[in-house]
């Protein structure tokens, strides 16, 4: 135990022999040796390998400027697409919604994004068409992505069909056949933020009853 190396993540800092917490939240441990503090914010702090939803703000010759709710705008290189070359640069109008991955997140540098996975495939990344986007806290988006499917999504999925894309930066995209379904799903998700699993299920059941 004494000579084991541990890795510290967000919210923890080492001062000589002691490790101190830098922010309020829950301490998480990923076995064997990763520790970090998780908390819910309305702002997003970029972190490598996070998948986020960004909105195109501007396009420059080399980069798209993308808003990912971070302190600074993120760069999306025009070549960071599957099979991207100088000749087939994609065209995004301002306001396009993109599902992207963070590849570089350093202090005092704009974060860098990519529309490819590690192997260079498109893998679901790219622009999202139609649907509706709403902003939540980072805590809720992490809850929606947690590994046993979040109760609210499961309960909604029993009776409705919808598409969902969750960015770790607190943006959630919902699409469905009819606008009323989209509105119902998005409001159910927003309301579920501070509810327990059972309460979420009850809430969804009530909504379904009202719908019928």
């Amino acid at each position: 135990m004494s000579n084991q190396t541990i890795k510290l993540g967000a919210g923890l800092r080492q001062d000589c022999d002691t490790i101190s917490v830098m922010k309020a939240g829950t301490l998480r441990l990923s076995k064997p040796n990763k520790y970090w503090v998780e908390s819910s914010h309305k702002r997003y702090v970029p972190c490598v390998e996070d998948t986020v939803l960004g909105i195109v703000v501007d396009s420059k010759p080399d980069n798209f400027l993308v808003d990912i709710k971070a302190p600074t705008l993120a760069f999306l290189p025009v070549l960071a697409f599957e099979g991207g070359t100088r000749r087939n640069i994609p065209k995004f109008e301002v306001g396009t919604l993109l599902y992207v991955r963070v590849v570089k997140a350093n202090n005092s540098m704009n974060p860098e994004l990519s529309c490819m996975d590690d192997t260079g495939k498109a893998a679901e990344f790219g622009p999202l068409k139609d649907g509706y986007v709403f902003e939540t806290s980072t805590g809720l988006s992490r809850m929606l992505l947690s590994s046993p499917t979040c109760p609210v999504l499961e309960a909604l999925g029993k009776s409705l069909s919808y598409e969902l894309a969750v960015g770790l930066n607190g943006r959630v995209w919902v699409n469905a056949a009819s606008p009323s379904t989209v509105i119902l799903v998005s409001n159910a998700i927003i309301n579920s933020e501070f509810l327990s699993g059972v309460q979420q299920k009850i809430m969804v059941e009530k909504l379904m009853k009202r719908l019928q």
Binding site: I55, A70, P71, G95, Y132, V133
Partner: peptide, 11 residues
Amino acid sequence: WASTWRMSVNE
């Protein structure tokens, strides 16, 4: 730019 709130085309 980074601090202004913006809306996507989808919304």
